[in-house]
């Protein structure tokens, strides 16, 4: 069991010590790619751990998982350094820092996270659940990171929250895993050009987020109103255009860890996604 640390400076010291404390003598080489912050409210703890497993050896150099909780203040942190063999005696390592934030520190997480970011590397924030727009914790973290990753499937009350998503685009680049999940279908729908240009109504069997994003995408790209009908399903299994079923896209749907990982490859704003979100609300 990792030792519990109660201040940011203790966490920093522990990280430094772990990097040098290697049985083979030499210091460990850290992958030099990014810092990944995950904001995990209690109800998302289990799902978050699932996705983090297997993510480390693909991407982040440092992962900071924040667990906000109620209480007066203070924090408890744990630090793990995981090493990965990279052939011929080479080992690279990644750090995972888990911090439980209470009360004040949960309301002002940027002041906890900022000293722990690896200098000069991009910072990604995975926010579980619908971000509480305007809330200090969210606003602070969004101001600290380079890219915000959400899964709008996790938000209740769609499509209204998309209006609020659109508000943050100018402050931080946003990736949406729900959007990434529609990628295979968008390629397939694009292949239906030019017939699809005249479509008036789309029916989507999948999650509510996917339905709104696909409809928003068609509206913004075709620059006109398109009606949406939604049939609930766990995942995206069918699209009908003016009553005709569209062909099923080839290949297997990507795994959750791959989806997150792909989003971490992207650094720029995605204007097509932003257009889809803006048109999803209307």
């Amino acid at each position: 069991m990792a030792q519990t640390l109660t201040s940011v400076s203790e966490i920093e010291r522990k990280l430094a010590a772990l990097r040098l404390d290697d049985e083979r003598g030499g210091a460990r080489q850290r992958t030099s790619v990014m810092t990944h912050i995950a904001w995990v409210p209690e109800e998302w703890v289990e799902a978050a751990e699932d996705v983090l497993t297997g993510l480390a050896d693909r991407h982040p150099s440092r992962t900071i998982v924040l667990f906000p909780q109620s209480g007066d203040g203070g924090l408890e942190g744990e630090v793990d350094v995981e090493s990965f063999g990279r052939g011929a005696g080479r080992t690279v390592c990644t750090d995972t820092i888990r911090i439980t934030l209470h009360g004040t520190s949960a309301a002002h997480p940027a002041s906890v996270v900022e000293p722990l970011l690896i200098p000069d590397l991009p910072v990604f924030l995975r926010w579980r659940g619908l971000p509480p727009f305007g809330d200090s914790a969210f606003e602070e973290l969004a101001g600290t990171v380079d890219r915000l990753i959400v899964d709008s499937t996790e938000g209740p009350g769609l499509p209204a929250p998309y209006a609020e998503f659109a508000e943050v685009f100018d402050r931080v680049a946003v990736s949406d895993i729900a959007w990434a999940r529609t990628s295979r279908w968008r390629s397939m729908l694009a292949s239906l050009w030019p017939q699809i240009a005249s479509v008036k109504k789309i029916k989507v069997t999948g999650t509510l987020a996917q339905a709104h994003l696909l409809a928003g995408w068609l509206r913004s790209r075709l620059e006109r109103q398109i009606e949406l009908e939604h049939e609930q399903a766990e995942k995206l299994v069918g699209v009908e255009l003016d009553g005709d079923p569209a062909p099923f896209p080839p290949g297997d749907p990507p795994r959750p860890a791959d989806l997150l990982s792909d989003e971490l490859d992207t650094l720029d704003r995605d204007p097509v996604y932003e257009g889809a979100v803006r048109s999803a609300v209307t």
């Binding site: 940011v8 203040g73 934030l101 004040t104 520190s105 949960a106 997480p109 940027a110 002041s111």
Partner: peptide, 8 residues
């Protein structure tokens, strides 16, 4: 006023 290491 502000927050440093999660404390005011």
């Amino acid at each position: 006023r502000g927050y440093v290491e999660g404390e005011e």
